[in-house]
Design a protein around this nucleic acid. Sequence first.
DNA 1: TAAATCATGTAAGCAGTTACATGATTTC
DNA 2: GAAATCATGTAACTGCTTACATGATTTA
Lengths: 178, 178
Amino acid sequence: MNALSYALLSMLNRKPFSGYDLKKLMELFWQAKHSQIYPLLTKLEKDELLTFELISQSGKPDKKIYSITDKGVAALKKWIVDEPAAIPVMRDEFLVKLYAIGLADPETARRIFEERLIAKKVTIARLQKEINLMEAQKDDSLTDITNKQFGRYLLYKRKLRLEEEEIEWVHWAISLLP
Amino acid sequence: MNALSYALLSMLNRKPFSGYDLKKLMELFWQAKHSQIYPLLTKLEKDELLTFELISQSGKPDKKIYSITDKGVAALKKWIVDEPAAIPVMRDEFLVKLYAIGLADPETARRIFEERLIAKKVTIARLQKEINLMEAQKDDSLTDITNKQFGRYLLYKRKLRLEEEEIEWVHWAISLLP
DNA sequence: TAAATCATGTAAGCAGTTACATGATTTC
DNA sequence: GAAATCATGTAACTGCTTACATGATTTA
Protein backbone atom coordinates (compact mmCIF):
# COMPACT_ATOMS: atom_id res chain seq x y z
CA MET A 1 0.00 0.00 0.00
CA ASN A 2 1.67 3.18 -1.18
CA ALA A 3 0.51 6.77 -0.79
CA LEU A 4 -1.17 6.76 -4.20
CA SER A 5 -3.41 3.92 -2.98
CA TYR A 6 -4.55 6.06 -0.08
CA ALA A 7 -5.02 9.05 -2.35
CA LEU A 8 -7.42 6.97 -4.46
CA LEU A 9 -9.22 5.68 -1.36
CA SER A 10 -9.53 9.25 -0.03
CA MET A 11 -11.27 10.43 -3.14
CA LEU A 12 -13.53 7.42 -3.35
CA ASN A 13 -14.46 7.98 0.27
CA ARG A 14 -16.24 11.13 -0.88
CA LYS A 15 -18.09 9.45 -3.73
CA PRO A 16 -17.70 6.83 -6.48
CA PHE A 17 -15.61 7.68 -9.55
CA SER A 18 -14.08 6.08 -12.62
CA GLY A 19 -10.31 5.86 -13.04
CA TYR A 20 -10.60 8.53 -15.68
CA ASP A 21 -12.34 10.90 -13.25
CA LEU A 22 -9.86 10.14 -10.47
CA LYS A 23 -6.91 10.99 -12.67
CA LYS A 24 -8.23 14.48 -13.30
CA LEU A 25 -9.53 15.15 -9.80
CA MET A 26 -6.24 14.14 -8.22
CA GLU A 27 -4.15 16.65 -10.12
CA LEU A 28 -4.53 19.20 -7.35
CA PHE A 29 -2.93 17.18 -4.60
CA TRP A 30 -1.29 14.06 -6.04
CA GLN A 31 -0.19 13.80 -9.66
CA ALA A 32 -0.37 10.40 -11.31
CA LYS A 33 -0.66 9.14 -14.89
CA HIS A 34 -3.49 6.89 -15.97
CA SER A 35 -0.96 4.09 -16.59
CA GLN A 36 -0.28 4.05 -12.88
CA ILE A 37 -3.86 4.53 -11.73
CA TYR A 38 -5.66 1.82 -13.72
CA PRO A 39 -3.50 -1.14 -12.60
CA LEU A 40 -3.58 0.12 -9.02
CA LEU A 41 -7.39 0.31 -9.01
CA THR A 42 -7.45 -3.29 -10.26
CA LYS A 43 -5.15 -4.29 -7.41
CA LEU A 44 -7.17 -2.43 -4.77
CA GLU A 45 -10.31 -4.11 -6.04
CA LYS A 46 -8.63 -7.54 -5.76
CA ASP A 47 -7.64 -6.66 -2.19
CA GLU A 48 -11.34 -5.89 -1.53
CA LEU A 49 -10.73 -2.26 -0.60
CA LEU A 50 -12.79 -1.22 -3.64
CA THR A 51 -15.61 -2.61 -5.75
CA PHE A 52 -16.68 -1.48 -9.19
CA GLU A 53 -19.81 -1.36 -11.26
CA LEU A 54 -19.44 -1.87 -14.99
CA ILE A 55 -21.27 0.69 -17.12
CA SER A 56 -21.67 -0.51 -20.69
CA GLN A 57 -21.10 2.15 -23.29
CA SER A 58 -21.27 2.17 -27.07
CA GLY A 59 -18.18 3.24 -28.98
CA LYS A 60 -16.13 3.64 -25.79
CA PRO A 61 -14.57 1.04 -23.49
CA ASP A 62 -16.84 -0.07 -20.66
CA LYS A 63 -16.68 2.35 -17.77
CA LYS A 64 -15.81 1.14 -14.29
CA ILE A 65 -17.28 3.15 -11.46
CA TYR A 66 -15.33 2.35 -8.32
CA SER A 67 -16.70 2.56 -4.79
CA ILE A 68 -14.83 2.17 -1.52
CA THR A 69 -15.73 -0.84 0.67
CA ASP A 70 -16.01 -0.90 4.48
CA LYS A 71 -12.63 -2.60 4.50
CA GLY A 72 -11.29 0.25 2.37
CA VAL A 73 -12.66 2.89 4.73
CA ALA A 74 -11.13 1.08 7.71
CA ALA A 75 -7.72 0.85 6.01
CA LEU A 76 -7.85 4.53 5.04
CA LYS A 77 -8.88 5.64 8.51
CA LYS A 78 -6.12 3.61 10.12
CA TRP A 79 -3.55 5.15 7.79
CA ILE A 80 -4.77 8.71 8.43
CA VAL A 81 -4.84 8.32 12.21
CA ASP A 82 -1.91 5.99 12.92
CA GLU A 83 0.77 6.49 10.27
CA PRO A 84 2.97 9.57 10.39
CA ALA A 85 2.83 11.57 7.15
CA ALA A 86 6.01 11.40 5.08
CA ILE A 87 8.00 14.58 4.45
CA PRO A 88 6.50 16.26 1.37
CA VAL A 89 8.30 15.97 -1.96
CA MET A 90 8.25 19.02 -4.23
CA ARG A 91 10.02 19.01 -7.55
CA ASP A 92 9.62 22.24 -9.42
CA GLU A 93 11.93 22.98 -12.34
CA PHE A 94 11.13 26.66 -12.08
CA LEU A 95 12.93 26.71 -8.72
CA VAL A 96 15.98 25.04 -10.26
CA LYS A 97 16.06 27.75 -12.90
CA LEU A 98 15.50 30.41 -10.28
CA TYR A 99 18.56 29.26 -8.34
CA ALA A 100 20.77 30.15 -11.31
CA ILE A 101 18.61 32.91 -12.79
CA GLY A 102 21.67 35.18 -12.83
CA LEU A 103 22.84 33.28 -15.93
CA ALA A 104 19.92 34.71 -17.89
CA ASP A 105 19.90 38.30 -19.07
CA PRO A 106 17.29 40.49 -17.32
CA GLU A 107 14.81 40.34 -20.22
CA THR A 108 14.89 36.54 -20.23
CA ALA A 109 14.60 36.49 -16.44
CA ARG A 110 11.53 38.73 -16.72
CA ARG A 111 10.03 36.38 -19.34
CA ILE A 112 10.56 33.36 -17.06
CA PHE A 113 8.82 35.13 -14.16
CA GLU A 114 5.97 36.28 -16.41
CA GLU A 115 5.42 32.71 -17.58
CA ARG A 116 5.23 31.63 -13.95
CA LEU A 117 2.65 34.34 -13.30
CA ILE A 118 0.49 33.11 -16.16
CA ALA A 119 0.65 29.50 -14.97
CA LYS A 120 -0.32 30.59 -11.44
CA LYS A 121 -3.22 32.67 -12.69
CA VAL A 122 -4.59 29.75 -14.70
CA THR A 123 -4.44 27.56 -11.59
CA ILE A 124 -6.12 30.23 -9.45
CA ALA A 125 -8.98 30.54 -11.93
CA ARG A 126 -9.59 26.78 -11.77
CA LEU A 127 -9.43 26.76 -7.99
CA GLN A 128 -11.72 29.76 -7.60
CA LYS A 129 -14.27 28.22 -9.94
CA GLU A 130 -14.36 25.00 -7.91
CA ILE A 131 -14.53 26.89 -4.61
CA ASN A 132 -17.44 28.96 -5.93
CA LEU A 133 -19.26 25.74 -6.85
CA MET A 134 -18.72 24.32 -3.39
CA GLU A 135 -19.75 27.53 -1.63
CA ALA A 136 -22.90 27.77 -3.74
CA GLN A 137 -24.16 24.54 -2.17
CA LYS A 138 -25.19 26.13 1.08
CA ASP A 139 -27.46 23.23 2.10
CA ASP A 140 -25.05 22.35 4.88
CA SER A 141 -21.90 24.05 6.01
CA LEU A 142 -18.62 23.34 4.25
CA THR A 143 -16.75 24.36 7.37
CA ASP A 144 -18.22 21.51 9.38
CA ILE A 145 -15.92 18.50 9.73
CA THR A 146 -18.86 16.12 9.39
CA ASN A 147 -19.54 17.41 5.88
CA LYS A 148 -18.03 15.04 3.26
CA GLN A 149 -16.71 18.08 1.37
CA PHE A 150 -14.88 19.51 4.40
CA GLY A 151 -11.39 18.17 3.64
CA ARG A 152 -11.67 18.92 -0.04
CA TYR A 153 -12.80 22.47 0.71
CA LEU A 154 -9.87 23.09 3.05
CA LEU A 155 -7.52 21.66 0.45
CA TYR A 156 -8.77 24.06 -2.22
CA LYS A 157 -8.66 27.04 0.13
CA ARG A 158 -5.08 26.18 1.11
CA LYS A 159 -3.94 25.88 -2.48
CA LEU A 160 -5.63 29.15 -3.42
CA ARG A 161 -3.88 31.05 -0.62
CA LEU A 162 -0.51 29.61 -1.55
CA GLU A 163 -0.92 30.39 -5.23
CA GLU A 164 -1.94 33.96 -4.43
CA GLU A 165 1.03 34.34 -2.11
CA GLU A 166 3.38 33.11 -4.81
CA ILE A 167 1.95 35.65 -7.25
CA GLU A 168 2.79 38.41 -4.80
CA TRP A 169 6.30 37.03 -4.50
CA VAL A 170 6.70 36.95 -8.30
CA HIS A 171 5.65 40.60 -8.48
CA TRP A 172 8.30 41.41 -5.89
CA ALA A 173 10.91 39.39 -7.80
CA ILE A 174 10.08 41.18 -11.08
CA SER A 175 10.36 44.54 -9.32
CA LEU A 176 14.00 43.72 -8.50
CA LEU A 177 14.98 43.27 -12.14
CA PRO A 178 16.72 46.20 -13.82
CA MET B 1 20.14 15.05 -18.77
CA ASN B 2 17.32 15.07 -16.26
CA ALA B 3 16.18 17.88 -13.96
CA LEU B 4 18.34 16.62 -11.11
CA SER B 5 21.40 17.09 -13.32
CA TYR B 6 20.47 20.73 -13.79
CA ALA B 7 19.76 21.14 -10.10
CA LEU B 8 23.31 19.99 -9.37
CA LEU B 9 24.74 22.26 -12.05
CA SER B 10 22.74 25.20 -10.67
CA MET B 11 24.22 24.79 -7.23
CA LEU B 12 27.73 24.28 -8.51
CA ASN B 13 27.33 27.42 -10.59
CA ARG B 14 27.31 29.34 -7.32
CA LYS B 15 30.37 27.64 -5.90
CA PRO B 16 32.16 24.26 -5.66
CA PHE B 17 30.71 21.60 -3.35
CA SER B 18 31.06 17.93 -2.49
CA GLY B 19 28.25 15.46 -3.17
CA TYR B 20 27.63 15.36 0.54
CA ASP B 21 27.18 19.15 0.69
CA LEU B 22 24.95 19.17 -2.39
CA LYS B 23 22.63 16.59 -0.90
CA LYS B 24 21.93 18.80 2.11
CA LEU B 25 21.79 22.10 0.26
CA MET B 26 19.33 20.76 -2.27
CA GLU B 27 16.71 19.75 0.26
CA LEU B 28 14.99 23.09 -0.02
CA PHE B 29 14.16 22.89 -3.69
CA TRP B 30 14.88 19.39 -5.02
CA GLN B 31 14.98 16.33 -2.80
CA ALA B 32 17.36 13.54 -3.75
CA LYS B 33 19.09 10.73 -1.88
CA HIS B 34 22.86 10.41 -1.89
CA SER B 35 22.50 7.12 -3.81
CA GLN B 36 21.11 9.11 -6.71
CA ILE B 37 23.47 12.06 -6.43
CA TYR B 38 26.85 10.32 -6.32
CA PRO B 39 26.46 8.26 -9.52
CA LEU B 40 25.02 11.29 -11.32
CA LEU B 41 27.97 13.49 -10.35
CA THR B 42 30.29 10.79 -11.74
CA LYS B 43 28.31 10.82 -14.99
CA LEU B 44 28.31 14.62 -15.27
CA GLU B 45 32.05 14.62 -14.71
CA LYS B 46 32.52 12.04 -17.52
CA ASP B 47 30.40 14.27 -19.76
CA GLU B 48 32.81 17.13 -18.92
CA LEU B 49 30.12 19.34 -17.39
CA LEU B 50 31.91 19.08 -14.04
CA THR B 51 35.43 18.52 -12.76
CA PHE B 52 36.51 17.51 -9.29
CA GLU B 53 39.43 17.97 -6.98
CA LEU B 54 40.27 15.08 -4.67
CA ILE B 55 40.82 16.09 -1.06
CA SER B 56 42.65 13.36 0.87
CA GLN B 57 41.35 12.81 4.36
CA SER B 58 42.35 10.49 7.17
CA GLY B 59 39.68 8.18 8.57
CA LYS B 60 37.09 9.30 6.03
CA PRO B 61 36.71 8.52 2.32
CA ASP B 62 38.51 10.98 0.04
CA LYS B 63 36.39 14.05 -0.53
CA LYS B 64 35.55 15.15 -4.05
CA ILE B 65 34.98 18.85 -4.50
CA TYR B 66 33.10 19.37 -7.75
CA SER B 67 33.27 22.51 -9.88
CA ILE B 68 31.21 23.38 -12.94
CA THR B 69 33.07 23.67 -16.27
CA ASP B 70 32.47 26.22 -19.04
CA LYS B 71 30.65 23.48 -20.91
CA GLY B 72 28.51 22.90 -17.82
CA VAL B 73 27.63 26.59 -17.52
CA ALA B 74 26.70 26.68 -21.21
CA ALA B 75 24.47 23.60 -20.89
CA LEU B 76 22.78 25.02 -17.79
CA LYS B 77 22.21 28.41 -19.37
CA LYS B 78 20.74 26.83 -22.48
CA TRP B 79 18.35 24.76 -20.37
CA ILE B 80 17.26 27.75 -18.28
CA VAL B 81 16.66 29.99 -21.27
CA ASP B 82 15.40 27.60 -23.96
CA GLU B 83 13.59 24.70 -22.31
CA PRO B 84 10.10 25.22 -20.90
CA ALA B 85 9.87 24.29 -17.21
CA ALA B 86 7.88 21.12 -16.53
CA ILE B 87 4.69 21.34 -14.47
CA PRO B 88 5.69 21.10 -10.80
CA VAL B 89 5.18 17.81 -8.97
CA MET B 90 4.06 17.99 -5.34
CA ARG B 91 3.41 14.88 -3.33
CA ASP B 92 2.38 15.62 0.21
CA GLU B 93 0.78 12.87 2.28
CA PHE B 94 -0.65 15.46 4.63
CA LEU B 95 -2.88 16.65 1.80
CA VAL B 96 -4.08 13.11 1.15
CA LYS B 97 -5.04 12.81 4.80
CA LEU B 98 -6.65 16.24 4.73
CA TYR B 99 -8.90 15.19 1.86
CA ALA B 100 -10.50 12.54 4.08
CA ILE B 101 -9.93 14.25 7.44
CA GLY B 102 -13.62 13.79 8.22
CA LEU B 103 -12.83 10.13 8.97
CA ALA B 104 -10.81 11.22 12.01
CA ASP B 105 -12.49 12.40 15.19
CA PRO B 106 -11.99 16.13 15.93
CA GLU B 107 -9.25 15.52 18.53
CA THR B 108 -7.23 13.44 16.07
CA ALA B 109 -7.82 16.01 13.35
CA ARG B 110 -6.51 18.71 15.69
CA ARG B 111 -3.42 16.60 16.43
CA ILE B 112 -2.72 16.16 12.71
CA PHE B 113 -2.95 19.92 12.13
CA GLU B 114 -0.77 20.66 15.17
CA GLU B 115 1.90 18.28 13.84
CA ARG B 116 1.80 20.13 10.56
CA LEU B 117 2.26 23.42 12.40
CA ILE B 118 5.33 22.12 14.21
CA ALA B 119 6.91 20.85 10.98
CA LYS B 120 6.28 24.22 9.32
CA LYS B 121 7.76 26.14 12.24
CA VAL B 122 10.94 24.04 12.14
CA THR B 123 11.29 24.78 8.43
CA ILE B 124 10.70 28.49 8.96
CA ALA B 125 13.39 28.65 11.63
CA ARG B 126 15.91 27.08 9.24
CA LEU B 127 14.91 29.40 6.43
CA GLN B 128 15.02 32.50 8.60
CA LYS B 129 18.46 31.59 9.89
CA GLU B 130 19.83 31.20 6.37
CA ILE B 131 18.18 34.43 5.20
CA ASN B 132 19.69 36.28 8.16
CA LEU B 133 23.12 34.97 7.19
CA MET B 134 22.67 36.14 3.62
CA GLU B 135 21.34 39.54 4.64
CA ALA B 136 24.24 40.04 7.07
CA GLN B 137 26.66 40.00 4.14
CA LYS B 138 25.88 43.51 3.02
CA ASP B 139 29.04 43.86 0.91
CA ASP B 140 26.94 43.91 -2.24
CA SER B 141 23.21 43.78 -2.69
CA LEU B 142 21.38 40.47 -2.63
CA THR B 143 18.59 42.02 -4.67
CA ASP B 144 20.87 42.58 -7.64
CA ILE B 145 20.59 39.94 -10.37
CA THR B 146 24.34 40.07 -10.99
CA ASN B 147 24.97 38.85 -7.43
CA LYS B 148 25.65 35.10 -7.40
CA GLN B 149 23.38 34.78 -4.35
CA PHE B 150 20.43 36.49 -6.05
CA GLY B 151 18.53 33.37 -7.16
CA ARG B 152 19.19 31.56 -3.92
CA TYR B 153 17.99 34.55 -1.93
CA LEU B 154 14.76 34.79 -3.92
CA LEU B 155 14.24 31.05 -3.46
CA TYR B 156 14.54 31.32 0.32
CA LYS B 157 12.28 34.36 0.50
CA ARG B 158 9.64 32.58 -1.58
CA LYS B 159 9.72 29.48 0.57
CA LEU B 160 9.50 31.55 3.75
CA ARG B 161 6.43 33.40 2.54
CA LEU B 162 4.70 30.19 1.50
CA GLU B 163 5.45 28.46 4.80
CA GLU B 164 4.13 31.45 6.74
CA GLU B 165 1.00 31.50 4.61
CA GLU B 166 0.40 27.83 5.25
CA ILE B 167 0.72 28.40 8.99
CA GLU B 168 -2.03 31.01 8.79
CA TRP B 169 -4.16 28.53 6.87
CA VAL B 170 -3.57 25.82 9.51
CA HIS B 171 -4.69 28.23 12.23
CA TRP B 172 -7.85 28.90 10.25
CA ALA B 173 -8.42 25.15 9.76
CA ILE B 174 -7.97 24.45 13.47
CA SER B 175 -10.46 27.24 14.29
CA LEU B 176 -13.12 25.34 12.32
CA LEU B 177 -12.81 22.22 14.47
CA PRO B 178 -15.44 21.77 17.19
C1' DT C 1 28.06 5.04 25.24
C1' DA C 2 24.74 5.92 21.95
C1' DA C 3 23.59 8.95 18.32
C1' DA C 4 24.71 12.20 14.96
C1' DT C 5 27.88 13.90 11.49
C1' DC C 6 31.13 13.39 7.93
C1' DA C 7 31.91 10.98 3.39
C1' DT C 8 31.27 7.92 -0.64
C1' DG C 9 29.73 4.19 -3.09
C1' DT C 10 26.68 -0.11 -5.12
C1' DA C 11 22.48 -3.27 -5.62
C1' DA C 12 17.76 -4.34 -5.58
C1' DG C 13 13.29 -3.03 -5.91
C1' DC C 14 9.40 0.09 -6.19
C1' DA C 15 7.29 4.37 -8.18
C1' DG C 16 6.49 7.10 -11.95
C1' DT C 17 6.83 8.48 -17.04
C1' DT C 18 6.61 7.73 -21.90
C1' DA C 19 5.12 5.17 -25.58
C1' DC C 20 2.07 1.87 -27.78
C1' DA C 21 -2.83 0.49 -28.66
C1' DT C 22 -7.87 1.46 -29.91
C1' DG C 23 -11.73 4.25 -31.41
C1' DA C 24 -16.19 6.95 -31.17
C1' DT C 25 -17.93 11.62 -30.08
C1' DT C 26 -17.67 16.38 -29.47
C1' DT C 27 -15.74 20.92 -30.02
C1' DC C 28 -13.05 24.51 -32.61
C1' DG D 1 -10.80 18.53 -40.98
C1' DA D 2 -7.99 18.75 -36.88
C1' DA D 3 -7.84 18.67 -31.98
C1' DA D 4 -9.74 17.67 -27.68
C1' DT D 5 -12.45 14.63 -24.78
C1' DC D 6 -13.99 10.30 -23.18
C1' DA D 7 -12.25 5.67 -21.60
C1' DT D 8 -9.14 1.80 -20.42
C1' DG D 9 -5.29 -0.96 -20.69
C1' DT D 10 -0.08 -2.91 -21.26
C1' DA D 11 5.14 -2.60 -22.03
C1' DA D 12 9.43 -0.53 -21.63
C1' DC D 13 12.08 2.55 -19.52
C1' DT D 14 13.79 6.09 -16.25
C1' DG D 15 13.74 8.05 -11.67
C1' DC D 16 13.75 7.44 -6.89
C1' DT D 17 13.97 4.89 -2.41
C1' DT D 18 15.65 1.47 0.68
C1' DA D 19 19.10 -1.44 2.08
C1' DC D 20 23.86 -2.94 2.20
C1' DA D 21 28.75 -1.55 3.07
C1' DT D 22 32.57 0.97 5.77
C1' DG D 23 34.49 3.65 9.55
C1' DA D 24 36.55 7.72 12.11
C1' DT D 25 35.17 11.91 14.67
C1' DT D 26 32.19 14.75 17.22
C1' DT D 27 28.28 15.77 20.11
C1' DA D 28 24.71 14.73 23.64
